[in-house]
Each structure stands twice: as C-alpha cells, then as structure tokens.
Design a protein around this nucleic acid. Sequence first.
DNA 1: CAAGAAAACATGTCATACAGGTTTTGGGCA
DNA 2: TGCCCAAAACCTGTATGACATGTTTTCTTG
Lengths: 240, 240
Amino acid sequence: MVSDRGIGPDETNPGLVSAAIQAITQHIRVEGLGPGDLLPSEADMTRKLSVSRTVVREAFRSLSAMRLIDMSAGRRASVAKLDIGAMSMVIEHGVTTEQISVQQVYDVRRTIEMRTVALAALRRTDAEAAEIQKCARLMRENYRAPEIVMEHDIAFHEAIARASHNPVFSLIINAFSGVTRRTWVIGWRTRVTEEEQIKMIEGHADIARAIIAGNPQLAAEHMAAHFDKSVKALIDAGIA
Amino acid sequence: MVSDRGIGPDETNPGLVSAAIQAITQHIRVEGLGPGDLLPSEADMTRKLSVSRTVVREAFRSLSAMRLIDMSAGRRASVAKLDIGAMSMVIEHGVTTEQISVQQVYDVRRTIEMRTVALAALRRTDAEAAEIQKCARLMRENYRAPEIVMEHDIAFHEAIARASHNPVFSLIINAFSGVTRRTWVIGWRTRVTEEEQIKMIEGHADIARAIIAGNPQLAAEHMAAHFDKSVKALIDAGIA
DNA sequence: CAAGAAAACATGTCATACAGGTTTTGGGCA
DNA sequence: TGCCCAAAACCTGTATGACATGTTTTCTTG
C-alpha cells in the first residue's frame, strides 16, 4: 500500500513507525495545517492506522524531536512554528563525528552571511536596525567579558539574518550557532592584545553602520573582512 | 540528577525522553564515536538511565528519524553517516505550512550555489568534472522528457555541491531537492517554446564547461544567469 | 577444524495499566 | 438566565510484560 519510492523525505526505511510519520506529515499537508493547528490524538491515529499506540507514539515523538510538532502532556500535539530543531542537531552531529570541519562550517557561514548582510542593508526595518546596533554596542560595552561578547556576537549575526527577511537564512545561521559557541573562545584567545580584540569588535560596528546606512556593498565588504579575520584566527589556533 | 541547563540543542523541553536523547548524543561525543560505531543496546541504556525501555526506545527512534543513528531489527543502533535526514524534513515542513516560500528557497539556493560552483571550478577532481558534464549531457539528450531532465538537473546541482568538497553545502542543497522537485515542472512549463527549453539546458552546459575549464568567475556568472532565469520563470508562473 | 544447530541477544510490535495534566461537561448557586 | 466550580472525559507520559523476528555468538558434532 505504501509506495516504496523515496519521494518524500525519510520514506526510505520500512517499518510501521516510518509509515506513521509519513501519515502524520501527510495529514498536515492534506489538511493544510499551519503552526498551532492541532493534530489528531494518538488514539485517533492508532485507530486510523490500525497499529499500536506504541508505534504512533514513536512517530509523534520523532516529529517532536525534529521540532516539526509540539507536544505536551495532556494536550494534543500541534504543528510547530519553524525552528532550528533538527537542523542544528544534524550539524552538531556532523561536527562531533568529524564528518564536518569547523572551517567548512565557517565557509558556509561566510557564504550565507555575505548575502544576509546585503539583504539586511536593503530590507531592514528600523527596529531591526536598532537591534543590530544594540548587539554591536553591547559587545563593545562588555569587551572584557568574552562570554558575554560571544553571546552578543551570535545575537548580532542572528539579528542580521532575521533582517534579511528570509527565514531560511535564519534557520541555517541559527543551526550553526552551537558550533560557533564551541569555537568562538578559541578565536578570541588568538587575539592576544586588547587592541586586536577591540578591532574585532569594531568590525561589527562597521557592519552595523553599513546596514543602517542601507549600503549593501559596504556591508558585504565589512562582513567579508570580518570572516576572513575570524577564519584566520581559527586557523592560527590550529583548528583544521 | 539531570542538569537542566540547555546547552546542547533540543535540551529545552523536559521529560525523560529528551534526557535520554541527550544521554545518547553525549555518549557519542564522549566516546568519540564515528560513523558505523555501535551504540549501547536499549537494555543497556535502560539500566544506565534507570528508565523504562519505552523511554529509551522513543529516544533512539527520534535520533533515527533525524538520521543521526541507523537502526535495524536485531542489530544494535550505530552512528550514521552524514545525511540530509532531518534537514530536508525541516525545509519541507516550512514550505508545506507556508512558513517558507518557494522563492525564499530559491534565493538561498542561489546564494549557496554561486559559491559551490566557484569552489567546484577550483577543486573538482576529474571524476567530478566528468560527472557534472554527464548530467548536462543527459539533460540535453532527454530534453523531450521533462521528468528525466529534472532528475538530471537536480543531480547536476548536487554533483556541483559535491565537487565543492564541503559536505555542508551538499547537505543544504540536498535538503532543498524535495522542494525543487515539486516546483521544477512549473518553471519548465513557462518555457513554452522548444528553443527556450534548449536554451535553459544549454545554460547548464555553460556552467559545466566553466567548471571543467577551472574558471570560477565564469562559472559563477553562468550560475547566476541560470538562477535569475529560473526565478523569473517561477514568478511568471505565479509562485509567490 | 569446519559447518551447522542452538542459545543468547537485539530490535519491532502489541496490550495493558496507571499517574498526572488539560479540556469538556454539567450541575448548583446567585 | 448566567456564572462558577467540581466532576468526568480525554490526553499524554511512563512502566511492565509478552512475543515475533532478525542477528550474533557459542557450542556441538561430524
């Protein structure tokens, strides 16, 4: 009954659970559900698919782990808002199992952020511009506390991605933030002098200014310079 | 006993299953496991975490759904090779629930493929060059059968991503192929005349030639032209 | 020593039970 | 009638036990 062609994702391996996952995602598609809409209860699905609740539960739980649906006790599952969810798990997995190098992640980030920063310069709202500028300012104000600088650094890049008004960019950048968090300090430490550290922070301010000025070209140039320096710092630190 | 800090991804929501997922991924990290390495059995995990097999199973199943581990009957689970897995599910979910538009996906693809094509021109092996060229040739040879052209088109872009020698690019491009598959025909239909269709196919040949010639700039230009035309075709067809 | 059977182990699925959270229902009171 | 609250119905979270089926290990036997 179930087609064995791998059209939809995840539909390669057999088993009742995969079929149930497929059935649930198909239900979302067919019913045209959007974020927040309720899914059938596990009992309903159990009847509809004629399988045990165990199977249905594992399917729901899998979708929940990917953050495609939200689950909570007592309530029926609902369609989830777009979220990094699985994406960051995949990236983390790739890095920890050494199938992806940190440098490769940075290359992708550079590629994407050259675009988000240009889009942000063109499409940012005033509120978004303020948010970006605020992150840059907080980096400067806390430049003696690396951990805090890092968080604002990450928030800075996420804010730019948001200002690109393309959620896919946000998704991808956010998915990388776990890796960034685990390598950021290494890059920071290679900037031994306070002057170098301040220069790095000022690089962010340059980017922010270009975005606020609505100058995509300049913003992209500053972003490129920023990444080139960051990658160089990582390479100097011996990150392959 | 279980730390409630949400450092790792997915560690926001409570519950024994999330804790188990965390425990398994942590096991992979701590033990330094790589693709193919075996994980503890469900019974082992049940004992180690002092939870029921139900919980452990749902955790394993969730990781399996994300394709972070491989499961099959009778065998213990093993660490999985890098795979689109969850990534494509997230993208599909975003598109079907209308949180992502097709055009946004194409903008991301354009951004990324401008880079992969340049990298491919610089880093491709001869075998990879041949593969890319073969896809372009097969498109031309089958230009009367849209479905077949489409498959070779998708394979063409995936081959370029592979030739970039950065698996993260491959991952992302592959994650988009589901969306591509569902919109490709629409773009094709707007190219009403046979001449236009052939021109589109020739665009791919141009890209392939530039890659083989090792000319990243030219390759990127052809890729940009290709995407601009594709997006225009989709917009003409009314895809928002 | 090799081949094959048996045992041990592993996952896949099902049924049942109960705790605890959420929504619905319905009755009582103003 | 209309509102509030308690009970009931419904739902998910977790545990346990059982059995089928697939895989690996072990041991016997030729």
